[in-house]
Nucleic acid binder design. Sequence first.
DNA 1: CCGTCATTCAATGGAGTAATTGAATGACGG
DNA 2: CCGTCATTCAATTACTCCATTGAATGACGG
Lengths: 225, 225
Amino acid sequence: MSIRNPKQALYEQFAIVARALGHPLRLELIEHIAQGARSVEALAAKLGQPVANISQHLQALRRAGIVSAERDGKFVRYSLADASVLSAFAAVRGVAERQLAEVDRIVRGYFDARDDMRPVTRHELQRLMRDGLVTVIDVRPADEFALGHVSGAINVPLGEIKAWSADAAVGREIVAYCRGPWCVMSFEAVATLRSLGHSARRLEDGMPEWKAAGLPVEVVGRYCG
Amino acid sequence: MSIRNPKQALYEQFAIVARALGHPLRLELIEHIAQGARSVEALAAKLGQPVANISQHLQALRRAGIVSAERDGKFVRYSLADASVLSAFAAVRGVAERQLAEVDRIVRGYFDARDDMRPVTRHELQRLMRDGLVTVIDVRPADEFALGHVSGAINVPLGEIKAWSADAAVGREIVAYCRGPWCVMSFEAVATLRSLGHSARRLEDGMPEWKAAGLPVEVVGRYCG
DNA sequence: CCGTCATTCAATGGAGTAATTGAATGACGG
DNA sequence: CCGTCATTCAATTACTCCATTGAATGACGG
C-alpha cells in the first residue's frame, strides 16, 4: 500500500476531503462559515467550544481545501474556499437523508416534520416575493443577517418572533429561513407563528444556498463574505 | 458532547456518510460497484486485497447507506444504494479537483492531461453517435462491459487496443470511456491510439454517470446491476 | 446430512484522530 | 518598543479506525 499508483494517489486526495467532512463539529463549522467570513473566536463562541479546538478543526478543513483563511489585522477570517463545498455538503446530506433510517427518526422526533410543513422552494419564493404576496423573515441572529441576507427579507431573530408577530398582519403568509435545510431556527419560528394563528412556511434551505444559486443578497455594512 | 441536540444528532449522521467516503479503498470499491452488482470476492480480486478486509469495508459502506447487500445463493452481491451516491462522490471529487494542488500535480504528472486531451461531454457524444460520426469503445474488462455499457459501444479491453486498432479505419474519430472521470484506462487507450495515428478522445466520465443520467445502456446476459 | 466455499465475525496490534492544557507566535495600539 | 490579544503550536491522554489472522456462519451440491 505504500507504493501508490496514480489512481490510488487520487483516491487518497478525495478521501482527505471526505474525511474532513466526517466530523459533526466540522460540519457545523462549515454551516456557520457559509453564512459569511468569520474569525476563530467568533466561531468558537457560536459553537460553544474552546478556541484551540476550533482552530485545529479549521486547519483540518483548510488542509482539505474546504475553507480558506485570510488575515485581517489581529483576526484570521475563515470563509468557504468554493461554492462547490456547499454542493458536496448537500450531496452527503442527500445520501444520509435517503438512506439512513436514523436521520428519518431524528427528523420525525425533533423537527416534527409533517406533510403540512412542506417547505417553499427557492423558485417558488422568488415568484411569491415578486408578486408581493409574502413577508420574508430571516430568523438568524443579527450578526449573521448583517453578513448577508435574502434581498427584501427582514431580520427577526428567534427570540423576537413573538413580539414581532403581534404587529404582523394576520392572513398574510410568512416565509422563514435561517442557515440551511436542517437549521432548527426556521422550524421553531414556523411552529411559533402557527401557534399564534399566522400562516407560515419554511424556505427549503438557507441563505448560503440562496446566495450560491446567484439570487439577490444584501449586505449590511462593509463586509462582503 | 454526550447530550446531543437534534442538530448535532443530524450532523453526526451526515458525518457517518462522509467518513465512509473517507478512505481510498472504499472509494475504489464504490467505483467498482458502480459498474454493476458485485460479490465480495470479485471486488477483492479487482482491488488485490484480502477478502476479509474488503468485507469489512463493504460493511462500513453499508452502515453508511452507501451500498446495499443482497444474498444471491452462496454469494452476497453489493450494489450502490442510490444514484445519489454517485453525485456525492462527484461533489467530493469536485472540491478536491478545485482546491487541492496535489490533485493537479498528480493529474499533470501521471495522466499527462494536456489541453488537447479535453474530453468529450456526454451530450456531445450523444450527438456524435446519433450522426454516426464516431466509434465508441469501452476499454474496461469484459466482465464489467457485460454488466452494462453505453448502447452502441464495442468492448476493447486495454490489452487488445493495439490489435484492434490495426483493423480500425484511420481518420474516423474514436471515443474511449471506462469506469469514471479519473479512471486511467481511457487515458491509456487514447494515448495508445494517438501514438498509432488515430484520432481519439475520452468521454468526460464513465459508464455509471452515463447510466445515472438516464442515457441508453445495454446489458449482456441476465444480470441487471 | 456432510463437505465445500463465500462471507462474516472476533481479536490483535499498530496508526491515526480528538479534546485539553499551556506555551509560543505575530500583529496591532499606544 | 512593549503590552495586549487573537491565533496557532506542542504535548498529553483517550479513543477510534485499519489490516491481519484464524475461526464461525450459512447456503449450496451431492
